[in-house]
Amino acid sequence: MQPPAPDNVYLPKIAILDRTEDEIADVRTFYWHFDDPAVQTVFKRFRPGQFAQVSVFGVGEFPASLPPSPTEPNLFLTVRKVGSVTAALHQLKLGARFGVRGPYGNGFPMQNYFGQNLVIVAGGIGLIPLRSCIVYALHNHERFRKILLFYGARTPGDLMYLNELPAWQEAPNFECYLTVDRPDQAWSHHVGVAGSLFKKPGVTVPVENTMAFVCGPPIMFRFVIRDLKAMGFEDRNIISTLERYMKCGVGKCGHCCIGLAYVCTDGPVFTYEQIKRLGEDI
């Protein structure tokens, strides 16, 4: 008799590509389901802010944020074509089989923030990991006070998930402010860096009893942190998610270490207070 198959955390589960949707240049959303319904059920218990290891067979594996909220029916990834494996993922045809394992990481402790305001600041594709907590918060909008999204990108063509904004704005306590660095002729919203939205006339950013979520390119991150601190945010009330090229996702390969932390198992979500104590620049 065959011995039972050992529990192998490195084994990708077979996923089947159902459909894709182009977001912005080089960024596409991939909807999938697991071949095994039991795997689908277990995977669906993920938390906002967790990530998965995605395999394109014969090419390799990469870590990817999970943009869906566990409150949504579908599983999907939003991936920028940036290296060999992500490029191969973009080549996959509908119905193709690829690999997903996870979910991994700590995720955002959303329940801890019930009763608070959420200030969500995203730059460019930094909205991908934050989409999960936006949709989660909106689904549970009566449990939060105000939910404010400040979203900036280089050009109007670099803003993602815009087609979802009308649905998001149905929540009565949701406000959304958009900005770009370089507007086009059709652009009617704000122009400037993400932090400049905080001072825009008519915008009131709550500070007391508020959690600030920040995700975006390093330069944007640095300036937004400075602006939040100037408004009176404490380090422990600013939270972000970090990224590294994890080879394992389970705290063994060592590639994602920043100072004292393994981003994969200790993170990827850290408060700014924790980030400052890592002992190495992010």
């Binding site: 090419v59 390799g60 594996e61 080879k247 394992c248 063994k252 390969c253």
Partner: peptide, 24 residues
């Protein structure tokens, strides 16, 4: 303990995923 992971051809239509010692 650190390692990297890569995929390499292993016969017609087949690939192997291997892990290899790595160094920080």
């Amino acid at each position: 303990t650190c390692f990297t992971v890569t995929e390499r051809p292993a016969g017609p239509g087949d690939y192997e995923r291997v892990r290899i010692w790595d160094a920080c």
